[in-house]
Design a protein around this nucleic acid. Structure first.
Lengths: 196, 196
DNA sequence: CGCCGAGTTGAACTGAATCAAGAAACGTGG
DNA sequence: CCACGTTTCTTGATTCAGTTCAACTCGGCG
């Protein structure tokens, strides 16, 4: 089972000495959650960011027709949060739920403020995260605008080979914006093509 | 014709005194471009951010099949840039082109660095811009995942009533991810419904 | 052993794309 | 100010990718 230590992660990504890390640790706590548990529900205000040490989360929304749309998966060493909700203090449109038993680090605003003050280069790091997020979202938009179901699926298993093995197909379909039936057919097609 | 002054915009959004503004102005220049002109082309590295004082720009990509997909429009008092390209120093996937004759302010990295150093609250402002951008992108993704052509169009004219009047339908279609023919039919449908 | 959820398969249906052709609007130069 | 070519918009006929609904299979688990 993959498992990442948040402390190690921090030190390797931001130049931090051990003392200041231990200070920071006062502002966050580890939490164990289980398959099906929620870290955030639609309508709630999101107050935290979560760092996944082990396990797997999904972030999704439910539209007016009651359909679930997965925005992103968060496996080990990913951050997940509804930054919009945290930042603008809005009720969130999203659920964050565990697909597997998961260990997370729960970080609040104070944590980030402390870190920003004591270690200005964290701002750069945070900025990089934001830009990465934007890049990711833009790529997804252009993909949704231009690619067929098959192309999107191929893209997905190439970019997230690990995740494609860990989650039920239904969820992959939901991420890709197609029905489970369609995904099943796409896979069948691909398998047949591969035979030849 | 709408026109916004960048200096005024800055002072009203970030608490800045006139002296420091004038310093900053040394790091950026105004530029007049004309309908059809490019500020950025696919494959180039994006080195600047642009603030639109008057006119209208579009940012788009061209996929493998040669189809144009509009990522966003930028009317007066909007910032536009390929932040990914600037930030990661990658060749851009996007074009930025003028739909109307346009006056922009061209801002380079130095501008932002100066501003960040002299006025730390600019960092907050920049952060807000990034978060807004993310919110906008996420909304677009959920929309693409769940809404029909008609719903997307209705959304568009509600959120950007001004733009929907200024750009040819072809471009709106490209933004919505549908063909111009489909958009034409959607509009016809809506008009008929409205008759009753 | 039997149930249950996830995945598969089939058949009918539908929203939107494609291709093609015509109408309207627009700006540019004579 | 009109005439012309270009671009934009509309309309129709056809096709297609993906949805929907319903029935069936399979593997795991109490």
């Amino acid at each position: 089972m993959n498992s990442f230590n948040f402390k190690t992660y921090l030190t390797s990504n931001i130049a931090l000495d051990n003392d200041s890390i231990d200070d920071l640790m006062l502002h966050c706590k580890q939490q164990q959650i289980y398959k099906g548990d929620f870290l955030l529900r639609q309508g709630e205000k999101c107050k935290h960011s979560f760092f996944v040490e082990s396990g797997l989360l999904k972030q999704y929304t439910i539209d007016e027709k009651g359909k679930e749309h997965i925005i992103q998966f968060a496996p080990e060493k990913w951050f997940i949060s509804d930054r919009e909700s945290v930042y603008f203090d809005n009720p969130s449109n999203y659920f964050i739920q565990a697909i597997e038993d998961t260990k997370v680090f729960v970080l609040d605003e104070l944590f980030f403020q402390e870190l920003s003050l004591s270690h200005p280069n964290f701002l750069d790091y945070n900025n990089r995260l934001l830009h990465n997020h934007i890049r990711h979202l833009q790529k997804r938009i252009t993909q949704l605008l231009s690619a067929t179901a098959e192309q999107r699926y191929l893209d997905f298993i190439q970019v997230y080979p690990d995740i494609s093995l860990r989650v039920p197909q239904t969820m992959i379909a939901s991420y890709l914006g197609i029905t489970p039936e369609s995904l099943s057919r796409v896979r069948k097609e691909l398998a047949q093509q591969f035979q030849k």
